[in-house]
């Protein structure tokens, strides 16, 4: 069921002063990654001390969704924040030209759709480092458009734009004037690929309720409504961090094997539920790699 929700959630921008973001890239070219991870330990401890909200919601996720005990959940909070720090560090390391090993499971799902005529959508999530998918899931046949939160700090946006220009990925920024809707619609009409996050409410406040870790949770309606409206195939991709410079990407179809004759509303609901189930399955494998720092079940 689609409903509305006032969105006063976590804003999802990268913390830290911009001069530091800019300075860190040249520094990273000449320093090993492990050194930055080591410094991160102190930063994470400091951050956790002064960030009760992210500490609380992460702890609740481990306790209530994962069903972990108190001590394991507290350890999980630490690991989650350290992982998040590592992933932000990896983003900058990538901007600085460092190499990462990315293995892909289900690439043929993406490649098959990229070969066929017509648009398709990739629903992303705030797990692992989805940005790494932009370097691996590329196509010579179709332009890929990534919908991104327009208020992310300038240093991140500039670097992201520069890096993705190399792979031919177009960035669409969510703006208050709704201009992003025209860009999304134009891209789909041209038969291109549109990638959009599916686990955070932004832009519209309408949502779809799905079963997520055994409880009803609100997923943004926009990505699923757009797919159902166009009858576009939908896939999801999770890029999870492994050891040091390793990432593992999993690509799954969300629309293969859907029953015929579904109404628009049923189609939206089914795609959204398939996404929620795929996200849950991935988080059960990588519980410390979900970086949505607000109460998802509120």
């Amino acid at each position: 069921m689609a409903e509305t929700l006032e969105h006063k959630q976590w804003q999802g921008t990268t913390d830290g002063p911009q001069f530091l973001h800019r300075a860190i890239i040249p520094v990273m070219r000449w320093t090993p990654l492990w050194l930055h991870y080591s410094v991160l330990v102190f930063y994470v401890l400091g951050y956790l001390t002064f960030s009760p909200k992210s500490r609380r919601v992460t702890y609740q996720f481990f306790r209530q969704a994962m069903g972990w005990g108190r001590f394991k959940s507290m350890l999980g909070v630490l690991k989650n924040h350290f992982r998040f720090g590592q992933i932000i560090t990896d983003r900058f390391a990538k901007y600085a030209g460092k190499k990462f090993n990315i293995t892909v499971e289900g690439r043929e799902i993406f490649d098959n759709l990229a070969e066929k005529p017509g648009c398709f959508m990739v629903i992303s999530s705030h797990t692992g480092c989805y940005e790494m998918a932009g370097y691996s899931l590329t196509s010579t046949k179709k332009r890929i458009n990534t919908v991104s939160y327009g208020k992310e700090v300038k240093s991140i946006m500039d670097n992201r734009r520069e890096q993705f220009a190399v792979t031919g990925t177009n960035m669409i920024f969510v703006n208050d004037d709704m201009s992003h809707l025209f860009e999304i619609n134009n891209a789909l009409r041209r038969g291109e690929v549109v990638s959009i996050p599916g686990d955070r409410l932004f832009g519209s406040t309408k949502y779809i309720v799905c079963d997520f870790f055994g409880r009803p949770a609100k997923f943004p309606r926009g990505p699923f409504a757009t797919a159902a409206q166009r009858g576009a195939p939908v896939i999801t991709a999770f890029v999870m961090k492994g050891r040091y410079r390793d990432y593992h990407m999993v690509v799954r179809s969300l629309t293969d094997g859907l029953p015929d004759g579904l109404s628009r509303a049923e189609l939206e609901q089914t795609i959204a539920q398939n996404f929620a189930s795929a996200l849950e399955a991935e988080l059960r494998k990588y519980p410390t790699q979900w970086f949505n720092y607000y109460d998802f079940w509120e």
Binding site: D177, M178, L181, F182, N185, G203, S204, G222, A225, T226
Partner: peptide
């Protein structure tokens, strides 16, 4: 109405009246 509705209206104009709105 909000942004999701706007997208519905853009597509409705295209399907029903052949009007392609490309300029925000």
């Amino acid at each position: 109405l909000d942004s999701i509705d706007a997208l519905e209206l853009i597509v409705m104009l295209e399907k029903n009246y052949g009007i392609k709105l490309e300029d925000p």
